[in-house]
Amino acid sequence: MEEQLKEIMGAVFNVDPSVIDENTAAGDLEKWDSLHHMNLVAALEEAFDIEFDEEEMLSLMNYKLILLTLQEKVQS
């Protein structure tokens, strides 16, 4: 899952996936603005076949939180 998350973030923010690590947060990537955040949510929901609620969507602002939320969602 971590690998796929990095791949998706790399695609959405147009950076090499190796740039993404567990400390990556919204401020670290030039392209991570509100438009690209929407793209990230759409890409994650489709790739993992899940749906975030509005609160979750807004909270996905760094790698660790995204991973945690994904793990919860995918397991349940």
């Binding site: 791949e7 695609a11 959405v12 793209n39 890409a43 489709e46």
Partner: peptide, 12 residues
């Protein structure tokens, strides 16, 4: 293709 794959392919 999935959306993120579309972005990947498009960048290429």
């Amino acid at each position: 293709l999935k959306y993120f794959q579309i972005i990947q392919e498009l960048n290429k």
